[in-house]
Design a protein around this nucleic acid. Structure first.
Length: 465
RNA sequence: GGCCCCAUCGUCUAGUGGCCUAGGACACCACCCUCUCAAGGUGGCGACACGGGUUCGAAUCCCGUUGGGGCUGCCA
């Protein structure tokens, strides 16, 4: 912990809800700060008026909190620091580092034939209005020190004279970013690789502003889709909030995100946050892009769900059981759910799957899966006789799982089939499906009356088909 | 087009010159366990993009090729 002065920041633009890439960036900044005992700053980059909306900012804060990512300073909003940017831009202009330009995009394009960025047309026109452009040096180079990629060198000739202040006087993100990182004494800039090409511009800006403390960078590999393209809000499912609604636990989401580009020691992929903090090493992060694999996320989530204390699992499941359930809400019975919860917990990959595993308990009539019905009842030899027998035996037997198991086994023996075969038609008749929590526990919780009703109904259904 | 980044099983990764017959996880397949499913157990399938160097020795270092990606806005 020698570096007690480490200061990092997560600076999202409120373009909508926080997406998984942003969440990963936030997490890595946070892990690094916590690992070295540094400071984690939250800064909202809303220099674009369209993004400067409280609801969008609140959404980001809510998602960060959900993930368990807390901040030491902020949230700061760039929309409230316009004065600082105005002074900086004036300074650049007054020292000759920036000049006015009134070219339209079309004019520039016409001159350059779309070849590269701005061509420097207004450099020496001495204008006094328009956008302010940075006068990029035409020789020399800037080296970006990157903890993940090593030194990355950019020749200044490849940098166009980029805009630092808009016609309306507002700063663009490059300027705001440079000014804020200097003012907030940020020492390590951890962000997505898509920002790497803009880094020399920020460094040049900082130098022109008189800054001498060059930060260290760490450009994280992009998170990509199945086509290996950067995750996009338009085509990909990326809103973290959306995953929350789909039944993923924050701890699982966080753990999975940490695995994208970084790997814990000892092949121990599922690990508590304290261990992540203890082990995290920004320099050990991989440089190559990572695919966001929902299958793996599911596996991680399932593991976290199984590890929950049952009471917690029940509590966390409630929103999915009470909001828009597949059964009439008044039929829900917490006690019955609690009775089967341990078995449901072991089978749900997401909390959203929970209702589907217990719906037979709360529906007046179970929804019969046609394929299962066909296979286990219609085309199963002796199914009718099995159902008849089950009705007879279940009517008088002691109503507990052990006894249900015993009489069903006896029935199977009498019919010359394995228990697995004998319970199949009963399961489909009573729960509507061929898979689910253990049958005898399910029957016990459902109750004798409903069980018998459903078995009778199945017989009717079978004879009328 | 220009600039920049990247390259180990299908996917996420371990590997930092000999410990590699390349390890783990997810997914997939088989078997075991078992009242179904799940969980668990055992096993299987499966990768160092290619070509040159450097070296006694290269997945590991260098160069090139190929492939993929990012950036190239008065968005961030």
């Amino acid at each position: 912990m020698a570096e007690v002065t480490v200061r990092v920041r997560f600076s999202p633009a409120p373009t909508g809800f926080l997406h998984v890439g942003g969440a990963r960036t936030a997490l890595f900044n946070w892990l690094y700060a916590r690992h070295v005992g540094g400071t984690f700053i939250l800064r909202i980059e809303d220099t674009d008026a369209a993004m400067s909306r409280d609801d969008l900012v609140d959404g980001i804060l809510r998602t960060l909190r959900w993930l368990g990512i807390d901040w030491d300073e902020g949230p700061f909003r760039q929309s409230q620091r316009a004065d600082a940017y105005r002074r900086a831009a004036d300074h650049l202009r007054d020292t000759g580092h920036a000049y006015y330009c009134d070219c339209t995009r079309d004019q520039v394009l016409a001159r350059t034939k779309g070849e590269s960025g701005y061509d420097g047309w207004c450099r020496d026109r001495g204008l006094s209005a328009g956008v302010l452009r940075f006068r990029s040096p035409r020789d020399g180079q800037t080296v970006v020190r990157d903890l993940i990629r090593g030194d990355v060198t950019f020749d200044h000739v490849t940098l166009e004279d980029f805009v630092v202040r808009r016609t309306d006087g507002s700063a663009v993100f490059l300027l705001a970013n440079a000014v804020d990182d200097v003012d907030m004494a940020v020492t390590h800039v951890i962000r997505g690789e898509d920002l790497l090409p803009s880094t020399p511009k920020v460094l040049l800006l900082r130098a022109a502003l008189g800054d001498t403390a060059v930060p260290v960078f760490a450009h994280l590999p992009l998170i990509v889709n199945e086509k290996r393209q950067k995750l996009s809000k338009r085509r990909d499912d990326v809103a973290v909030e959306e995953f929350r609604e789909r039944g993923y636990l924050p701890e699982a989401m966080r753990n999975y995100l940490a695995l994208l580009g970084w790997s814990p020691a000892n092949d121990q992929e599922i690990l508590p946050i304290e261990d992540m903090v203890a082990q995290f090493d920004i320099g050990a992060v991989k440089a190559s892009p990572a695919f966001f694999d929902v299958k793996k996320l599911d596996a991680v989530n399932a593991e976290y769900i199984r590890a929950l204390p049952v009471a917690t699992f029940v509590r966390e499941s409630l929103p999915w059981l009470e909001t828009d359930p597949p059964w009439p809400p008044e039929r829900f019975d917490l006690a019955r759910f609690e009775a089967v919860a341990p078995m449901v917990q072991e089978r749900a990959r997401t909390l959203a799957e929970v209702p589907g595993l217990v719906d037979f308990l709360f529906l007046e009539e179970p929804e019969i899966d046609e394929a299962a019905w066909d296979k286990a009842v219609v085309r199963a030899p002796g199914a009718a006789a099995l159902l008849d027998d089950a009705i007879k035996l279940y009517r008088d037997c002691h109503w507990d799982t052990g006894e249900l198991h015993r009489v069903t086994a006896t029935m199977a023996e009498r019919h010359g089939v394995k228990l697995a075969k004998a319970q199949a038609p009963v399961r489909v008749a009573v729960t509507g499906r061929s898979v689910g929590p253990p049958l005898f526990e399910s029957l016990q919780v459902l109750g004798r009356r409903r069980t018998l009703e459903r078995l009778e109904r199945a017989k009717d259904r079978l004879s009328s088909s």
